[in-house]
Design a protein around this nucleic acid. Structure first.
Lengths: 107, 107
DNA sequence: CCGACGCATATCTCAATAGTTATAAATTAA
DNA sequence: TTAATTTATAACTATTGAGATATGCGTCGG
């Protein structure tokens, strides 16, 4: 079973899909049709990508008549931020331990 | 040609490869053999993943006799951090504009 | 010098998935 | 009701890439 990091990285790895998410972040809520215009792929492809983004918790949809409006959910990026700072943290702590070691060696 | 974000997301999307990078972050420099033991895949698979990580600038290698030592390069994560905060920034600024609009409507 | 060791590369296979077109389903307009 | 519009789903194709095994290449110990 894939954890949150897996889902996020895998979902955002595709350029087309990430571009869709970026547009929703930049420009706010958009219909499928509006997104399709500049997506460079067919409407079914856009719908499928939006489905994957929704599954990952990165977007939500709102139905209004015969159109569906999608918008970004920034909160879903939290695990990504945490992962990144965790990696940086590990690196930093190893650096600190090295510094300690060097300090002790000086004495 | 894929930009820095593309490379990073694509490289870190694979669980096995990301696990290798995480170990290098947590535990520092490791040989291919040491990494292979706990990787759950064959040694050639590990070598290939390390090659991809190196290509992405996420790790560097150091040859010593007949073994190769790999270590993480945290700086390579910068574009990822920037992308994330950029997305959050777009969201925030749209929120601010909405707030402004509501304030103006109040008057 | 020769065999074992450590890693990288070559080649192949298989599964996952992004894309397509065709079509269904639901809503609105005429 | 019929036709047009909007989105989602179905079915298929093609590509990508992660994994395996086999092997090549350099290095160390005996």
């Amino acid at each position: 079973m894939p954890d949150a990091h897996d889902v996020l990285f895998r979902t955002l790895a595709d350029p087309t899909r990430r571009a869709l998410f970026e547009r929703l972040c930049r420009e706010g809520e958009k219909t499928v049709g509006a997104l399709t215009v500049q997506a460079g792929v067919s409407q079914p492809a856009v719908s499928k990508h939006l489905g994957v983004l929704k599954q990952a918790g990165l977007v939500r949809d709102r139905h209004e008549g015969r159109q569906t409006h999608y918008s970004a959910l920034l909160g879903a990026l939290t695990p990504l931020i945490e992962w990144t700072s965790q990696m940086a943290g590990f690196w930093q702590s190893r650096f600190d331990r090295l510094e300690d070691l060097l300090n002790r060696m000086d004495q």
